[in-house]
Write a protein that binds this DNA or RNA. Structure first.
Lengths: 260, 260
DNA sequence: AGTGTAGGTTCAAATAATGAACCATACACA
DNA sequence: TGTGTATGGTTCATTATTTGAACCTACACT
């Protein structure tokens, strides 16, 4: 593992529940030596990717991520395109929606909005990285991205998140083919127990699949009617988002999405 | 220079005018070998900090910065606190306003809003890193942050940005003392010709100065009345922002800001 | 004074980064 | 069809950086 990946990997330990992390905590989380962690964090701090609380000496995400996100968002609007459409999606379905973008062979959550439905609703941690083989979004992306991506995933070890996670390679290939035929990825408790997800792919200006938009519902509320509604809304949202950032929906999608 | 700094430094080459950068362009910009640039960019890409256009192979900022900025913003609201106050600041003064946070010994722009005044107004590139010794924001931060910061800056070589940039160390120390006495940093064309800036410090919960809020006006419009208005509004804005994110304005500020 | 826990530092040994030279592809042009 | 010139990308011996056990310091609690 390269030094850069080690350093950047430390940033993934920050989340809603762990917004500030001390040096010793990083040792436990990362498994690297204390001196190594300290040097990685110091270099991240010089570059503004983390900053230290002036009193507690704990580390948190630094101002550079804000600046870079700002620059990216001004030059390649993604969150600003997605957010209003997520609102509509939640309004139409009552369920939690989230959008994620492909980063090599994992998905990065870039926007989410929790459902409005009474009582139970799916909670999402925006810091979480999403595995391709275990989620609806991942299936949607693998089905419509380059073949090489699926090969990479099949070559990696398929971690089991729940006892419903698909870890059998042949079964996964089948699932991806189903997804390609229907235009929607679906995952029943593959990543989190009690959560059922449906997802549609998102495309860039080269008709390359670069991410997915998904809706997550508690399994208790699963029904054919809700499924149909969600698919209709997801296809609409995928078109709006893709066009919103100047992307093009490939012809094959128009063919499979005609029935929804 | 460490490998991490080299890699993260590449990200600073992205800006409004250069949202996408090719490998060879990076060689020219960074001065590193092609193989080195390629390896650094590949490792950044694996971690989602850059991504490549699927057709042109040019690199741009990746989705990870969006996710991390989102996580930071949810756990430590900064932009969401600052933005509405910047709006008010621009509405009250008609001039361009921007906020920046300290990152070791440089300032990172995290929000900006251009002025509404007719014709001339100052334009800001949100990707730009702001030097401490040449700007109003830098003076405001040095005056109210730990002494060690000023020492660091005085020990570095003071790059000249315009022929009005203060590069004389004794003169800079004087300027910092003036700033401490008045509560506002001021810079006349120290960073950009034709631009006059005034800035006020921002504080965190430990009463540590962590950034600045500033207003930049074309020198042509400079006047005592406008100065007085800007200072009044900046002091108000600094209080609102500092309190907005749970910070505390140190007693010394209340003493020097009583007259505005 | 003693113990535990935290952040931070040192330096010889182990490891990863580097860059000159290489290949492949695409395009322009005579 | 061949030549020149751009680009992105790769290889591997040399070189420089990263690593981690042991160490230091500060503070809270007993």
């Amino acid at each position: 593992m390269g030094t850069i990946t080690k350093a950047l990997g430390l940033l993934n330990h920050f989340s809603l529940n762990h917004p500030e992390i001390g040096l010793i905590q990083f040792v436990k989380l990362s498994g690297f030596d204390k001196a190594t962690n300290h040097r990685l964090l110091s270099e991240l701090a010089i570059n503004g990717f983390v900053e230290q609380d002036s009193l507690t000496r704990k580390y948190r995400l630094g101002p550079s991520v804000l600046r870079l996100a700002n620059v990216r968002e001004i030059t390649f609007p993604a969150r600003s395109v997605i957010n209003p459409i997520l609102e509509d999606l939640v309004a139409a379905t009552g369920e939690t929606a989230h959008a994620s973008l492909l980063q090599s062979n994992i998905l990065t959550t870039i926007a989410h909005k929790e459902g409005t439905t009474h009582g139970t609703r799916v909670h999402i941690d925006p810091a979480e990285l999403i595995p391709l083989h275990a989620t609806a979004s991942g299936l949607a992306v693998m089905a419509f991205a380059q073949e090489a991506l699926t090969k990479q995933v099949l070559a990696s070890d398929l971690k089991s998140w729940t006892n419903s996670t698909i870890v059998d390679r042949a079964q996964l290939v089948d699932k991806i083919e189903d997804t390609r035929a229907s235009g929607f990825g679906g995952s029943n408790q593959g990543f989190e127990n009690g959560v059922y997800g449906i997802a549609a792919p998102l495309f860039d200006k080269n008709q390359t699949c670069i991410g997915a938009i998904a809706i997550a519902t508690p399994t208790s509320r699963q029904s054919e009617q809700l499924d149909a509604l969600i698919k209709k809304e997801l296809a609409k949202a995928s078109r709006r988002i893709t066009h919103g950032w100047g992307g093009i929906i490939p012809g094959q999608m128009e063919a499979v999405w005609t029935h929804v």
